[in-house]
Simulated scan of single mutants.
Amino acid sequence: MPPLSVLDLSFVNAGASAGQALQDSLALARHVDGLGYTRYWLAEHHALPSVASPAPEIMVGQIAAATRHIRVGSGGIMLPNHAPLMVAERFKMLEALFPGRIDLGLGRAPGTDGITAQALRRREVPRGGDDFLDRLQELLLWDTGEFPEGHPFRAVTVMPAGVPLPPVFLLGSSDYSANLSGRLGMGFAFAQHFAGIDAAGPMLDYRRLFRPSRWAGRPHAILAVAAICAETDVEAERLAMSARLSTLRRERGDYAPLPSLAEAEAYPYSEMERARIDRGAARLHVGGPETLRAKLSALAQATQADEIMIVSAIHDQAARRRSYELLAEAWGLPRAEG
């Protein structure tokens, strides 16, 4: 069985504040720290009322300081929004403060709408609209120091000096990042929780194309999935109603906070809306401990995932923490000591 990890989007719950969502993230991280989960990653989103954190690097530091065992990282830093030197500085600082516990996941999407992306970047859009490769190359050169002779950046010292970048993973929901991370010899994480294609293709392509590099000697493919666990299948399906209604709204461009269970139960679904929920059901894995264990085990086998990363949109925070606990027990994760 591959290891399990946590992906946290810092969901804002209906009836609660964005500040409370950040506190909920800290509480969840403390809870799972001793349950045997391998990583705790934080996402980057901007100007979405449903997601509280636009700055994963800040949350990474806060959560690493509040935990003892689990690796903490970005899932991810949206590189086109940031100067590569700033990313190098911030994650070298995190690595220096928490050596051996930090990951750097990188994405190429803006994590927001077009207007907000323009406000974040405030620069001319590159020809073709995508300079991710240029930024990635620069970020890696800040780590290696191998800028060409005569390049002005050769004179810049990245502080803290002598600290490497943490392990780098490229994130994606298509075959682009799968192919790129394989050819560059980096880790890869596939976002099955919102991808429009089956995960097996990109996951297997990544493994087939992987070439050992200074960044990684062997492939490591993480499959990020949406999952909700409860004591029984019936209760898990009930808890999932909030997530299903939220997904339905997002497809209409409504990024309101995660609805309460009472609101989801009372919502008057049309036949068309129920059909849309049914079509997207495969992206949300729901069940009691044994049911969910069987579903995720089959998915891991089909995709040859080295690791499964769980994101759980559950309005009730006690139920959310219990979901991760039940899954850890069913998966047989070894609890951390001390």
Rank of each mutant, 00 (worst) to 15 (best):
P166G: 02
S174Y: 01
G201M: 15
P167R: 04
F188I: 06
M203I: 04
L171S: 06
G172T: 05
M186C: 05
F190I: 04
A200V: 10
G185I: 05
L170I: 09
A191R: 02
S174H: 13
D175R: 14
D175G: 13
I197M: 14
G187N: 07
I197C: 03
R214C: 11
F190E: 06
P212A: 05
G185W: 00
G185P: 10
N179V: 14
F194P: 00
L209R: 12
F188E: 00
R211V: 15
L180M: 04
G187K: 13
G217I: 08
M203N: 01
S181P: 11
R218K: 11
Y176K: 12
R218S: 13
A189C: 14
V168W: 14
R183F: 02
L170P: 04
Y206G: 04
P202M: 10
R207Q: 11
F210L: 04
A178W: 06
F194E: 03
L204Y: 05
S173D: 09
R211F: 11
D175Y: 08
R183H: 08
G187V: 01
A200S: 10
A200D: 14
R218M: 09
P212N: 03
P166N: 07
R208L: 15
F210I: 09
G217F: 02
G182K: 01
G172L: 00
A216K: 10
A200L: 06
G185V: 00
A199I: 00
R214A: 09
A199G: 07
A216D: 00
P202H: 10
A216S: 11
A189W: 14
A200H: 02
P219I: 00
R214G: 14
G172Q: 02
A178V: 04
L180P: 12
Q192D: 14
H193E: 06
A191Y: 00
N179M: 15
S181D: 09
M186G: 00
R207S: 01
R211D: 12
S181G: 11
S181T: 08
A178D: 15
L180D: 10
P212W: 07
L170C: 12
P166M: 04
G172I: 06
L184P: 07
S181E: 08
F194Q: 05
A195H: 04
P212Q: 08
R218G: 10
Y206M: 04
S213P: 00
H193N: 13
F194T: 09
L204M: 10
S213H: 10
L170V: 02
F188D: 00
R208T: 14
I197P: 13
D205R: 15
N179E: 14
G196C: 07
V168D: 08
F169S: 07
D198W: 13
Y176S: 15
F210Q: 13
D198H: 11
A189S: 12
A216I: 10
A200W: 03
D205E: 15
S213E: 11
L209T: 08
G182H: 03
R183I: 05
N179K: 12
R208G: 13
G172D: 09
L180A: 03
S173P: 06
I197H: 02
A191N: 01
D175N: 15
L171G: 03
S173F: 15
R207G: 06
I197T: 15
G187A: 09
S173T: 12
I197G: 05
G196P: 11
R207A: 08
Y206R: 07
P212L: 09
